[in-house]
Protein backbone atom coordinates (compact mmCIF):
# COMPACT_ATOMS: atom_id res chain seq x y z
CA UNK A 1 0.00 0.00 0.00
CA UNK A 2 2.81 2.32 1.00
CA UNK A 3 4.76 1.62 -2.17
CA UNK A 4 1.64 1.91 -4.27
CA UNK A 5 0.76 5.23 -2.69
CA UNK A 6 4.28 6.52 -3.20
CA UNK A 7 4.24 5.49 -6.84
CA UNK A 8 0.91 7.16 -7.52
CA UNK A 9 2.06 10.29 -5.83
CA UNK A 10 5.35 10.41 -7.68
CA UNK A 11 3.63 9.79 -10.99
CA UNK A 12 1.04 12.52 -10.41
CA UNK A 13 3.69 14.88 -9.13
CA UNK A 14 5.90 14.24 -12.11
CA UNK A 15 3.06 14.93 -14.52
CA UNK A 16 2.11 18.08 -12.69
CA UNK A 17 5.66 19.39 -12.68
CA UNK A 18 6.13 18.45 -16.32
CA UNK A 19 3.31 20.63 -17.54
CA UNK A 20 4.25 23.63 -15.44
CA UNK A 21 6.67 24.29 -18.27
CA UNK A 22 3.83 25.89 -20.19
CA UNK A 23 2.81 28.11 -17.33
CA UNK A 24 3.45 31.80 -17.53
CA UNK A 25 6.37 32.73 -15.34
CA UNK A 26 5.70 33.61 -11.76
CA UNK A 27 4.90 37.23 -11.23
CA UNK A 28 4.85 37.97 -14.92
CA UNK A 29 2.78 41.14 -15.38
CA UNK A 30 1.96 40.05 -18.94
CA UNK A 31 0.38 36.72 -18.03
CA UNK A 32 -3.22 36.27 -19.17
CA UNK A 33 -4.48 36.15 -15.62
CA UNK A 34 -3.28 39.66 -14.96
CA UNK A 35 -4.19 41.13 -18.29
CA UNK A 36 -7.71 39.94 -18.99
CA UNK A 37 -10.08 40.64 -16.13
CA UNK A 38 -8.06 42.04 -13.33
CA UNK A 39 -7.14 45.38 -14.93
CA UNK A 40 -10.82 46.16 -15.11
CA UNK A 41 -11.25 45.49 -11.43
CA UNK A 42 -8.16 47.42 -10.52
CA UNK A 43 -8.94 50.45 -12.62
CA UNK A 44 -12.68 50.70 -12.22
CA UNK A 45 -13.60 49.49 -8.81
CA UNK A 46 -12.80 52.76 -7.08
CA UNK A 47 -15.07 54.59 -9.50
CA UNK A 48 -17.77 51.94 -9.31
CA UNK A 49 -17.86 51.27 -5.62
CA UNK A 50 -15.71 53.85 -3.80
CA UNK A 51 -13.85 51.05 -2.04
CA UNK A 52 -10.06 51.28 -2.11
CA UNK A 53 -9.52 47.69 -0.99
CA UNK A 54 -9.90 45.86 -4.27
CA UNK A 55 -10.23 42.46 -2.68
CA UNK A 56 -13.20 43.63 -0.68
CA UNK A 57 -14.72 45.31 -3.68
CA UNK A 58 -14.45 42.24 -5.86
CA UNK A 59 -15.47 39.91 -3.07
CA UNK A 60 -18.57 41.67 -1.92
CA UNK A 61 -19.66 43.44 -5.04
CA UNK A 62 -18.54 42.07 -8.38
CA UNK A 63 -18.60 38.51 -7.14
CA UNK A 64 -20.96 39.01 -4.25
CA UNK A 65 -23.06 36.09 -5.33
CA UNK A 66 -20.14 33.74 -4.66
CA UNK A 67 -19.68 35.29 -1.31
CA UNK A 68 -23.31 34.83 -0.41
CA UNK A 69 -23.03 31.14 -1.11
CA UNK A 70 -19.81 31.03 0.80
CA UNK A 71 -21.73 32.29 3.81
CA UNK A 72 -24.32 29.64 3.09
CA UNK A 73 -21.55 27.01 3.07
CA UNK A 74 -20.47 28.15 6.50
CA UNK A 75 -24.02 28.06 7.72
CA UNK A 76 -24.52 24.61 6.22
CA UNK A 77 -21.42 23.37 7.99
CA UNK A 78 -22.77 24.66 11.28
CA UNK A 79 -26.08 22.94 10.74
CA UNK A 80 -24.34 19.80 9.57
CA UNK A 81 -22.25 19.54 12.72
CA UNK A 82 -25.32 20.12 14.81
CA UNK A 83 -27.29 17.58 12.85
CA UNK A 84 -24.57 14.93 13.05
CA UNK A 85 -23.45 15.30 16.60
CA UNK A 86 -26.00 16.90 18.83
CA UNK A 87 -27.26 14.35 21.29
CA UNK A 88 -30.90 14.57 22.15
CA UNK A 89 -30.59 15.05 25.84
CA UNK A 90 -27.73 14.77 28.22
CA UNK A 91 -27.77 12.11 30.87
CA UNK A 92 -26.92 13.15 34.37
CA UNK A 93 -23.35 12.03 34.89
CA UNK A 94 -22.29 9.64 37.62
CA UNK A 95 -20.69 12.34 39.67
CA UNK A 96 -20.23 16.04 39.34
CA UNK A 97 -17.36 18.19 40.45
CA UNK A 98 -17.80 21.52 42.10
CA UNK A 99 -15.22 23.99 43.16
CA UNK A 100 -15.56 26.20 46.14
CA UNK A 101 -14.09 29.35 44.74
CA UNK A 102 -12.80 31.14 47.84
CA UNK A 103 -10.85 28.13 49.08
CA UNK A 104 -10.15 26.37 45.81
CA UNK A 105 -11.35 23.04 47.22
CA UNK A 106 -12.85 20.61 44.75
CA UNK A 107 -15.92 18.64 45.80
CA UNK A 108 -17.06 15.43 44.18
CA UNK A 109 -20.77 14.89 44.43
CA UNK A 110 -22.22 11.51 43.62
CA UNK A 111 -25.36 11.12 41.60
CA UNK A 112 -28.46 11.72 43.63
CA UNK A 113 -26.76 13.54 46.44
CA UNK A 114 -27.53 17.07 47.38
CA UNK A 115 -25.87 19.61 45.09
CA UNK A 116 -24.29 22.72 46.52
CA UNK A 117 -26.41 25.85 46.58
CA UNK A 118 -26.43 27.84 43.38
CA UNK A 119 -24.32 30.67 44.65
CA UNK A 120 -21.34 32.62 43.46
CA UNK A 121 -19.09 30.62 45.76
CA UNK A 122 -19.60 27.31 44.04
CA UNK A 123 -18.85 26.61 40.44
CA UNK A 124 -19.45 23.42 38.56
CA UNK A 125 -16.34 22.22 36.75
CA UNK A 126 -15.58 19.58 34.18
CA UNK A 127 -14.68 16.11 35.30
CA UNK A 128 -11.73 15.86 32.93
CA UNK A 129 -10.26 19.31 33.33
CA UNK A 130 -9.63 19.77 36.97
CA UNK A 131 -6.58 22.02 37.28
CA UNK A 132 -7.38 25.57 38.02
CA UNK A 133 -5.05 28.16 36.66
CA UNK A 134 -5.58 31.67 37.83
CA UNK A 135 -2.97 33.22 35.55
CA UNK A 136 -4.35 31.82 32.33
CA UNK A 137 -7.87 32.68 33.30
CA UNK A 138 -7.17 36.28 34.18
CA UNK A 139 -4.88 36.88 31.23
CA UNK A 140 -7.41 35.64 28.78
CA UNK A 141 -10.10 37.59 30.48
CA UNK A 142 -8.07 40.68 29.82
CA UNK A 143 -7.32 39.70 26.26
CA UNK A 144 -10.76 38.71 25.09
CA UNK A 145 -12.34 42.18 24.98
CA UNK A 146 -9.42 43.56 23.02
CA UNK A 147 -9.54 40.72 20.54
CA UNK A 148 -13.22 41.37 20.08
CA UNK A 149 -12.63 45.05 19.59
CA UNK A 150 -9.97 44.30 17.04
CA UNK A 151 -12.39 41.98 15.27
CA UNK A 152 -14.94 44.76 15.00
CA UNK A 153 -12.25 47.03 13.62
CA UNK A 154 -11.30 44.45 11.03
CA UNK A 155 -14.90 44.17 9.92
CA UNK A 156 -15.54 47.87 9.82
CA UNK A 157 -12.28 48.85 8.23
CA UNK A 158 -12.34 46.20 5.54
CA UNK A 159 -12.91 48.87 2.93
CA UNK A 160 -9.56 50.52 3.46
CA UNK A 161 -7.22 47.91 4.82
CA UNK A 162 -6.92 44.16 4.67
CA UNK A 163 -9.91 42.72 6.40
CA UNK A 164 -13.57 42.22 6.03
CA UNK A 165 -16.42 40.08 7.19
CA UNK A 166 -14.76 36.70 7.19
CA UNK A 167 -11.59 37.75 8.86
CA UNK A 168 -13.39 39.79 11.48
CA UNK A 169 -15.91 37.06 12.10
CA UNK A 170 -13.20 34.49 12.56
CA UNK A 171 -11.30 36.68 14.99
CA UNK A 172 -14.45 37.34 16.98
CA UNK A 173 -15.27 33.65 17.03
CA UNK A 174 -11.73 32.86 18.10
CA UNK A 175 -12.07 35.25 21.01
CA UNK A 176 -15.18 33.47 22.19
CA UNK A 177 -13.51 30.09 21.75
CA UNK A 178 -10.50 31.30 23.71
CA UNK A 179 -12.87 32.21 26.49
CA UNK A 180 -14.47 28.77 26.34
CA UNK A 181 -11.05 27.14 26.42
CA UNK A 182 -9.76 28.98 29.40
CA UNK A 183 -12.94 28.81 31.39
CA UNK A 184 -15.15 25.92 30.53
CA UNK A 185 -17.96 25.06 28.23
CA UNK A 186 -20.83 25.54 30.62
CA UNK A 187 -19.50 28.96 31.45
CA UNK A 188 -19.40 30.08 27.88
CA UNK A 189 -22.73 28.44 27.15
CA UNK A 190 -24.15 30.63 29.84
CA UNK A 191 -22.99 33.68 27.91
CA UNK A 192 -23.81 32.61 24.39
CA UNK A 193 -26.02 29.61 24.38
CA UNK A 194 -26.66 27.31 21.50
CA UNK A 195 -29.90 28.89 20.45
CA UNK A 196 -28.32 32.31 20.27
CA UNK A 197 -25.48 31.10 18.13
CA UNK A 198 -27.83 29.28 15.77
CA UNK A 199 -30.00 32.36 15.58
CA UNK A 200 -27.00 34.55 14.86
CA UNK A 201 -25.80 32.19 12.16
CA UNK A 202 -29.17 32.23 10.44
CA UNK A 203 -29.59 35.95 10.79
CA UNK A 204 -26.16 36.59 9.31
CA UNK A 205 -27.11 34.67 6.18
CA UNK A 206 -30.45 36.41 6.21
CA UNK A 207 -28.83 39.84 6.31
CA UNK A 208 -26.89 38.95 3.20
CA UNK A 209 -29.74 37.38 1.28
CA UNK A 210 -32.10 40.04 2.55
CA UNK A 211 -29.91 42.76 1.08
CA UNK A 212 -30.05 40.96 -2.21
CA UNK A 213 -33.81 40.63 -2.10
CA UNK A 214 -34.17 44.25 -1.08
CA UNK A 215 -32.27 45.24 -4.19
CA UNK A 216 -34.58 42.99 -6.14
CA UNK A 217 -37.65 44.61 -4.65
CA UNK A 218 -36.27 48.04 -5.42
CA UNK A 219 -36.24 47.13 -9.06
CA UNK A 220 -32.63 46.23 -9.73
CA UNK A 221 -30.98 42.86 -10.13
CA UNK A 222 -30.27 40.60 -7.21
CA UNK A 223 -27.51 42.11 -5.04
CA UNK A 224 -27.19 45.22 -7.18
CA UNK A 225 -26.46 47.66 -4.38
CA UNK A 226 -26.93 50.77 -6.41
CA UNK A 227 -30.66 50.24 -5.93
CA UNK A 228 -30.15 50.96 -2.27
CA UNK A 229 -29.14 54.54 -2.93
CA UNK A 230 -32.53 56.07 -2.13
CA UNK A 231 -32.65 54.23 1.19
CA UNK A 232 -29.16 55.00 2.34
CA UNK A 233 -28.83 58.46 0.92
CA UNK A 234 -25.99 59.42 -1.32
CA UNK A 235 -25.30 58.46 -4.89
CA UNK A 236 -25.35 54.93 -6.27
CA UNK A 237 -21.60 54.59 -5.91
CA UNK A 238 -21.66 55.30 -2.21
CA UNK A 239 -24.57 52.88 -2.01
CA UNK A 240 -22.28 50.20 -3.35
CA UNK A 241 -19.84 50.99 -0.61
CA UNK A 242 -22.52 50.86 2.07
CA UNK A 243 -24.05 47.75 0.60
CA UNK A 244 -20.69 46.05 0.86
CA UNK A 245 -20.47 47.05 4.49
CA UNK A 246 -23.91 45.65 5.23
CA UNK A 247 -23.21 42.29 3.70
CA UNK A 248 -19.80 42.15 5.37
CA UNK A 249 -21.50 42.60 8.70
CA UNK A 250 -23.88 39.80 7.83
CA UNK A 251 -20.96 37.58 6.90
CA UNK A 252 -19.14 38.43 10.12
CA UNK A 253 -22.15 37.57 12.26
CA UNK A 254 -22.68 34.28 10.49
CA UNK A 255 -19.03 33.25 10.61
CA UNK A 256 -18.65 34.17 14.26
CA UNK A 257 -21.76 32.30 15.31
CA UNK A 258 -20.97 29.22 13.26
CA UNK A 259 -17.41 29.02 14.60
CA UNK A 260 -18.72 29.04 18.13
CA UNK A 261 -21.49 26.63 17.32
CA UNK A 262 -19.18 24.11 15.66
CA UNK A 263 -16.78 24.42 18.56
CA UNK A 264 -19.52 23.67 21.07
CA UNK A 265 -20.57 20.59 19.19
CA UNK A 266 -17.09 19.27 18.52
CA UNK A 267 -15.69 19.96 21.94
CA UNK A 268 -18.44 18.26 23.86
CA UNK A 269 -19.28 15.60 21.29
CA UNK A 270 -22.71 17.09 20.95
CA UNK A 271 -23.67 16.75 24.58
CA UNK A 272 -23.12 20.37 25.50
CA UNK A 273 -22.40 19.66 29.12
CA UNK A 274 -18.65 19.66 29.45
CA UNK A 275 -15.64 19.46 27.27
CA UNK A 276 -12.11 20.73 26.95
Amino acid sequence: MRIFGLLTVLLCGGLLIYHTADFPAWGDPASPASTHLSPYYIEHSIDDTMVPNLVTAVLADYRSYDTMFETVVVFAAGIACFFLLRAAKSKTPESMLYRHIPTGITLRIEKGSKTPPDSADFERIDSVWVPYDLIIKITCRLLVPFIQLFALYVVAHGHHSPGGGFQGGVIFGAALILFALTHNLSNSLKRINEKTSALFAASGVLVYAGTGILCLLLGANFLDYSALAPLLGGDPKMAHSHGILIVEIGVAIAVMAVMVWIYYNLASRGRHDEGL
Binding site: S34, L37, I42, L54, V55, A57
Partner: peptide, 9 residues
Protein backbone atom coordinates in the same frame (compact mmCIF):
# COMPACT_ATOMS: atom_id res chain seq x y z
CA UNK B 1 -4.37 40.80 -9.18
CA UNK B 2 -7.17 40.81 -6.61
CA UNK B 3 -9.31 38.11 -8.14
CA UNK B 4 -7.37 35.00 -7.02
CA UNK B 5 -7.33 36.34 -3.49
CA UNK B 6 -11.08 36.69 -3.56
CA UNK B 7 -11.51 33.19 -4.89
CA UNK B 8 -9.21 31.78 -2.26
CA UNK B 9 -11.05 33.52 0.52
Amino acid sequence: NPLPHVLML
